[in-house]
């Protein structure tokens, strides 16, 4: 991910959209100065200064100063919906690669239906793709579950990997962006919060949906994103 000069244009666009100021900052940079300001995500206060602890877009909304990350690996949190690839199988479950700092484990017990220990690989084999939910994050590992609606192995289609920080953009407000793509390409799409995206449909539809998603990631900080995607999808079928 290369931050381009567009990031600064994003500032202007975001002012219009969210009525608050955003600017790209580097670690250690003073974002705001004054007794009134409070440090939010990825910032700290030293004296009267609020300082960035991370590279990203600083946002001052009211008194709170926070940083919205634009890069970095997926940081797992309880309740996150994720998509991963089965790395290994043992007698009690599946090791799953969901990206990010920790390896994750899906215990056999966390399957919604009974699976015989001898048939673990039949349910999900090495290399298979699974949609799961994060049950908990503990020191050194992430525990997953399938006990929730719509979770389980994903068959057919294709898996693409995007910058996890761009996931909110790909989904859009209340799913507006992803629904736009689904409707126009006649595909099923599941976006994992870890940046793994599963797309299934006719081959042409999948290809177009994949291109649209890449376009959102590339242009995520430019203004008029929705119009651009509409135009792209409305173009040649």
């Amino acid at each position: 991910m290369t931050p381009k000069t567009e990031e600064t244009e994003d500032t202007e666009m975001e002012i219009k959209e969210t009525k608050c100021e955003r600017k790209l900052v580097i670690p250690g940079e003073t974002i705001a100065s004054g007794e009134d300001y409070l440090p939010g995500d990825f910032t700290r206060k030293e004296g009267s200064e609020v300082i960035a602890n991370r590279y990203g877009l600083a946002e001052i909304s009211g008194r709170v100063v926070k940083i919205i990350p634009i890069s970095g690996v997926f940081e797992p949190r309880r309740g996150n919906n994720v998509i991963g690839r089965v790395e290994d199988i043992n007698f009690s479950g599946w090791m799953i690669d969901i990206g990010g700092p920790y390896s994750s484990f899906l215990p056999l017990m966390e399957c919604p239906r009974f699976i015989n220990r001898n048939n673990i690989a039949e349910f999900a084999n090495i290399g298979d793709v699974i949609h799961a939910k994060i049950l908990g994050v503990k020191k050194g590992g992430v525990d997953l579950t399938l006990k929730s609606r719509g979770l389980g192995p994903l068959e057919n289609g294709r898996l693409i990997k995007i910058n996890p920080n761009k996931v909110p953009r790909v989904i859009g407000k209340e799913g507006s962006m992803i629904n736009l793509i689904k409707d126009n390409t006649k595909t099923e799409i599941t976006v994992g919060q870890n940046g793994f995206v599963w797309v299934k449909g006719e081959l042409d539809g999948e290809e177009k949906a994949e291109k649209a998603i890449s376009l959102i990631v590339e242009e995520s900080s430019n203004s008029g994103l929705t119009e651009k995607i509409e135009k792209f999808l409305g173009g040649k079928k």
Binding site: D97, G99, G127, D128, V129, E155, N156, G157, R158, F196
Partner: peptide, 13 residues
């Protein structure tokens, strides 16, 4: 990430 099986299948199709 290593290659997911579904992507290999897609490549083949």
């Amino acid at each position: 990430m290593k290659l997911p099986n579904i992507n290999k299948k897609r490549i083949l199709t």
